[in-house]
Amino acid sequence: MESHYRFLLWLVPTLEKFPRAQRFLLGDRIQRTALDVLESLIEATYTRQRRNHLVRANLGIEKLRFLMRLAHDLRHLDGRRYEFAARSLDETGRRVGAWMKTHRARQSPRPV
């Protein structure tokens, strides 16, 4: 969750540098999706039924990967910024994946 929060701290000012039309279209979609991921991670932290929240966070991370790639291909993000975003999303994705695996292991029935 902390890694995604740091990503958001970087992301918000970065999106403000998008051209005006894209700031309100693509930039808003990216920001909303990133905030939804943060909310899902927070919800997963404070509930025992984590699976749905983690699946939603994982899906949001995948959406962000494509949205950031689109922003890069449209030349709204330079290579350095795109690389930072990709690495940050990869780190968060790996953490969510590990959390899902741990949660699954705890939920599976234990042999007697």
Rank of each mutant, 00 (worst) to 15 (best):
V12C: 10
S108Q: 15
I30M: 02
R104Y: 09
I42E: 04
M100F: 06
F18W: 03
L54S: 00
F18Y: 13
L77M: 02
H53Q: 14
H103Q: 13
Q31C: 15
D90V: 05
T14G: 05
D78I: 12
D73V: 04
R65E: 15
P19W: 07
Y46A: 07
K63C: 09
T33C: 12
G27L: 09
N52P: 15
L38I: 06
E16T: 09
Q49E: 14
M100A: 02
V96H: 03
R80T: 05
R23M: 07
R104K: 12
R80V: 14
N58W: 03
G93D: 08
A86H: 05
R110D: 12
A71F: 08
D36Q: 06
R50W: 01
A57G: 04
L25F: 08
A44K: 00
Y46P: 02
R51W: 05
I30W: 01
R23N: 04
R50I: 05
R48D: 15
H103S: 09
M100H: 00
G79C: 01
L67F: 06
T45S: 13
T33M: 06
L11V: 07
R69Q: 13
K63I: 10
L77T: 05
S40G: 08
D73Y: 00
R104S: 13
V55W: 02
L59I: 14
R32P: 01
R110T: 13
R104G: 03
T102R: 15
I30G: 00
Q107S: 12
A71K: 05
L59N: 10
G97D: 12
S40D: 14
R48F: 10
Y46R: 11
T47M: 08
V96K: 00
M68D: 02
R50C: 01
R65D: 11
D73G: 04
A44V: 02
R75V: 11
T33E: 10
K17W: 01
R20C: 03
E62T: 11
R51V: 09
I61V: 06
T33W: 01
S108V: 12
R87W: 07
G93M: 11
L54P: 00
R104N: 14
R23F: 04
R20W: 06
L64A: 04
L74Q: 13
E83K: 14
V37Q: 00
P109D: 08
E62Q: 10
P13G: 08
R81P: 02
R20G: 02
E91Y: 01
V96M: 03
R75K: 15
R110Q: 15
V12G: 03
E91P: 02
R48M: 14
A105E: 12
R29G: 06
L11F: 08
H53C: 15
L89K: 06
G93I: 11
A34Q: 07
R110M: 09
T45P: 00
Q22P: 00
Q49V: 11
T33G: 02
P13R: 01
L26E: 09
A57W: 10
L67M: 12
L77F: 02
Y82A: 11
R110A: 12
G27I: 10
Y82L: 12
S40W: 03
L35E: 07
G27R: 06
V55N: 12
R110F: 10
L74H: 09
N58K: 10
F84G: 02
R110V: 13
G97I: 10
E83I: 07
L38S: 09
T47Y: 03
A71D: 04
G79W: 07
A71M: 09
